[in-house]
Amino acid sequence: MELSLTTRTVAEYTVLEVGGEVDVYTAPRLRERLIELVDAGARDVVVDLERVDFLDSTGLGVLVGALKRLRTAHGTFGLVCAKEPLLKIFRITALDQVFPIFPTVGAATERDGSGPAS
C-alpha cells in the first residue's frame, strides 16, 4: 500500500498520521514532511503509526532524525503505536528506549508538552 501522510492539530500538538508502507522507497517522503513541519514552526510533534502496515530500518532512521531535529529545536517528539508487530520492531532495535511511545493519540497529546524530547 502506498504511503499516506495527513497532518492535523490536537491542542498544541501537530499530529502526523502515517499510513501504508514506510520503507527505503517511501521513507524520503516522510522525512521531507517532518522537516517541513519543523521548518514551519511545529515544536510538539506526534507521529501516529496506527495505519502503518510496514516499517523498516529506513523509516526508523527517519523517525530518529525527527527526534534529534526536535530535540535541537527544544521541541518534543512522540509516537503512537499499539500494533504488536511494530512494537516488536521497536523492542528489537532498542528504539523503545529512545522514543516516547503512546497507545493512542489521546495519550500522546494529554502529556505535559513542556518537557524535552527524549
Binding site: S57, G61, T93, V98
Partner: peptide, 23 residues
C-alpha cells in the same frame, strides 16, 4: 547499543545500517 541510537554525531546512514542489522 541503544545509547548510541539517538547520538547526535551518528549519521543517518550509519544509524539505518545499524538498525537494519539489528532487525
Amino acid at each position: 547499543p541503544p545509547d548510541e541510537l539517538a547520538d547526535e554525531s551518528l549519521t543517518d546512514d550509519a544509524l539505518t545500517t545499524g538498525v537494519g542489522f539489528a532487525l
